[in-house]
């Protein structure tokens, strides 16, 4: 049973990552290779708040989201003036810089040794989130809130403006829309919610190290939403479930672990290629990456 719960918690974490990343990739047409960096910032701030400051749950969560939002605002401010592919390269640069800092600033992050012993947070200083049941409840609530918030956003005038911008920036300008502001807002909002995933991960696993937040992870998040599909909520959710479940299915059918690890990467790659060829909007998305 614990095994199933563990999988469910990981699915919740990836739902939060993919649903919030979808706001950028599927709604605002901003492909970001830096999502794992924000995930990592959220996780490290969480570790610091729980170990160093001994904060309760909500302040820790808000601090993680806030610090991540500040980083994303700075990155957005610098890079959104860049067009298309240059924006992607800027997010790639950011991802590499954050990983390098996490890896090498040993005094603060303990570098490759990681941070062990992250305690469970207390809700209002009373209820301790404990054990796997505690985390299944916490992660389900947080991923439900994320889904709710992004559902609201997609169906709001702001969501409509993002879709408009995705379709046609010139037309948006001619209708009086400040597209730079729209992009910065989407970027900051998306990153702040990615930090929630970092919060759950750090306090649930109780140990973090930089390798969980490297470029591979950033690409993995993108893979999830490209497979599931973007532009709506369904797509990213299905993508998150798919990428988390696939390795477990491979194990279930009796594939030895070392083979399964490689097999899984091959299957992700093949799925992507086949989808892009026959179903570019992903399994359940509504937006095709073609112009």
């Amino acid at each position: 049973m614990n095994y199933v719960f563990h999988i469910l918690i990981m699915i919740n974490i990836y739902i939060i990552l993919s649903v919030s990343t979808n706001l950028l990739v599927g709604m605002a047409n901003l492909l970001s290779l830096g999502q794992a960096a924000f995930y990592g910032i959220g996780a490290y701030v969480t570790a610091y708040a729980l170990i160093g400051l001994g904060l309760p749950l909500l302040p820790t969560l808000l601090l993680a989201m806030g610090v991540t939002a500040i980083f994303s605002f700075l990155l957005a401010y610098i890079s959104l003036k860049l067009e298309g592919d240059y924006f992607i390269l800027a997010t790639l640069g950011f991802q590499i810089i954050i990983f390098t800092i996490l890896y090498n600033w040993i005094d603060v992050t303990r570098g490759p040794y990681g941070i062990p012993g992250i305690p469970s947070p207390k809700l209002f200083g009373l209820v301790k989130i404990e054990g796997i049941t505690g985390y299944i409840i916490l992660s389900t609530i947080l991923s439900a809130i994320t889904i709710f918030v992004f559902y609201k956003i997609i169906n709001s005038p702001f969501g409509r403006a993002l879709k408009g911008m995705r379709d046609d920036e010139i037309a948006m300008i001619s209708l009086g829309k400040n597209i730079t502001v729209l992009k910065v807002e989407a970027f900051v909002l998306s990153s702040a919610f990615v930090a929630i995933a970092g919060f759950i991960y750090a306090s649930y696993i109780s140990y973090i190290d930089p390798t969980s937040f490297n470029l591979d992870e950033a690409i993995f998040i993108l893979t999830a939403i490209l497979i599931g599909g973007t532009g709506n909520i369904k797509g990213p959710v299905i993508g998150a479930v798919f990428v988390v479940l696939l390795p477990e299915i491979l194990r279930f059918v009796g594939m030895p672990d070392n083979l399964a690890a490689n097999m899984r990467m091959i299957i992700y790659g093949l799925t992507l290629i086949i989808l892009m060829r026959y179903r570019p909007q992903g399994i359940a998305g509504e937006y095709k990456f073609s112009k």
């Binding site: 005038p157 702001f158 969501g159 879709k163 408009g164 379709d167 037309a171 209708l175 829309k177 729209l182």
Partner: peptide
């Protein structure tokens, strides 16, 4: 806007951006 509905194409054309702010949208 091809991927907005006909009505959304009209609504988005209001040059007053009221309600298009991200942080109040949810």
């Amino acid at each position: 806007f091809p991927k907005l509905t006909v009505m959304e194409n009209m609504l988005i054309a209001d040059t007053d951006p009221y309600g298009e702010n991200a942080f109040t949208s949810f």
